[in-house]
């Protein structure tokens, strides 16, 4: 008997992570609840004038998506670190680059993709013009994948620390900025009638770069965290 192929192994990891996530639905619900709460609070703080809200909507929606991603990325490797599974992952004969991508894909599916799918509801609550909703979903899908990839670098570096939450924010927030800028600019563009294509293309380019480089950094970060 030989070791499973790389692709079947990665799919198995993805399935494992998804099953683990769905057996603890509260972890999936938390970011969505956070999203809903903040969206509901903004009109109370800014005043309920519809024109004003729709002007702020792209920025608000993107900032909340970013923060809820930040809240969840801390936990990606934590339970595996605590119960020793991470050591086994590092010793596995499989390429760590791709195993790490499977972990990130699972994280993206239960945070970024879910947020992007429910975002039209929140967009309507903030009176975002209907023609911008498609771009919002597309930009969130692309952007949240970049956020997950970058967030996992911070998670890998801080997984060995008892209280890594604040440190992770300091480490990775600077790398979140470009995603926020181009993501909200894409939606803003769609609102004002500017073509959103170039912004989405830049987000796509960031995603390609992140897929190529982030797993290397994550793998190195995990090895350092387990070694320490």
């Amino acid at each position: 008997m030989s070791a499973p192929g790389t692709l079947p192994f990665c799919l198995r990891l993805l399935r494992r992570q998804l099953v683990l996530a769905f057996r603890r639905p509260i972890e999936i619900g938390n970011p969505l609840l956070f999203f809903a709460m903040v969206v509901a609070l903004f009109p109370l703080g800014l005043g309920p004038a519809p024109e004003q809200l729709s002007g702020f909507a792209p920025g608000i929606l993107w900032i909340i998506a970013l923060l809820s991603n930040l809240l969840t990325s801390d936990a990606v490797f934590r339970s595996d670190f605590e119960d020793g599974s991470l050591e086994q992952l590092l010793l596995s004969p499989q390429p760590l680059f791709l195993s790490v991508l499977a972990y990130i894909a699972a994280h993206w599916l239960v945070t970024g993709v879910l947020l992007a799918l429910v975002s039209p509801v929140f967009a309507l609550m903030l009176n975002l013009p209907v023609q911008a909703v498609g771009v919002l979903v597309a930009s969130l899908l692309l952007g949240s994948a970049v956020l997950s990839l970058v967030g996992c670098i911070g998670a890998a570096l801080t997984v060995g620390l008892k209280r890594g939450g604040m440190l992770i924010s300091l480490l990775i927030l600077p790398f979140y900025m470009p995603v926020l800028i181009f993501g909200s600019a894409a939606v803003q563009g769609a609102v004002t009638g500017v073509p959103a294509g170039p912004y989405l293309a830049i987000l796509g380019a960031m995603l390609c770069l992140a897929i190529a480089l982030a797993p290397l950094a994550i793998a190195a970060g995990l090895r350092i965290s387990v070694d320490a």
């Binding site: 399935r15 494992r16 599974s85 050591e87 596995s92």
Partner: peptide, 25 residues
């Protein structure tokens, strides 16, 4: 190692079948 590497949310069968060690099917 010292830690069992067993996920409390998975059954023993799932723990072994989907083990991150990736040694075999």
């Amino acid at each position: 190692g010292h830690q069992a590497g067993v996920k409390a949310l998975l059954t023993p069968r799932e723990n072994l079948a989907w083990h991150v060690g990736g040694e075999g099917d």
